[in-house]
Amino acid sequence: MLSLQDIHSFYGRSHILQGVSLEVEAGETVALLGRNGVGKTTTLRTIMGLTPARKGVIIFDQQDITRQATHRIARAGLALVPSGRRIFSNLTVRQNLLLAQSHSKSPIGEGWTIGRIYDTFPKLAKLDSRRAGFLSGGEQQMLKLGRALVANPRFLLLDELTEGLAPAIVGDLFMWLKQLQDEGLGMLICEQNALFALDLAQRAYILDKGQIRHQGTADKLRGSKEVMQYLGV
């Protein structure tokens, strides 16, 4: 479904991704792990066309998206849940969702509407007309996830979803993501919280200084002392 072949990406002159190749099948969940600053976010940015690859090929759904404009990549069915507070803080919760919904795809399975987002995250329903900038960290994470889902993507790119969240909310998040998996949504998960990601994923790639160092099934990597040590788990 999503395939990166020998991807090289730069910020100005600094060569960040140095030949990253990875593969995610339809409906599969894959984790992309690594220490701070190894290039996880850059990989997601490159897939979305925000930091276009200078070399290599990215195929999504049998379509070459390497040089496509970001909005076309989004409309092809990829949705990014970015790290940090990147909701539109001046707009209300509903306006944030409406903007994401307007380029909605034909859904996989039941499909997501704002109503269903509010059923899944009842807290968001109560905050419907609140300015998104006033939301707590956990509420903003829900909004970011909800915003990605109402677009009815075929594939989710998740960046540091558990960052700064209370353990109880991380538990809820785990449950929601499991549910999305069951509906057949493919995911690429970047996480500092390696155990969280490995529990969800079938397979994982370990990134180090812009290159893939290890790859394998989640179980195999979880059992590897070397990998666990590298990840600092």
Binding site: H71, A79, L80, P82, L99
Partner: peptide, 9 residues
């Protein structure tokens, strides 16, 4: 950037 990543030209 996020707006583009949500499909807006």
């Amino acid at each position: 950037e996020m707006l583009a990543a949500m499909g807006t030209n």
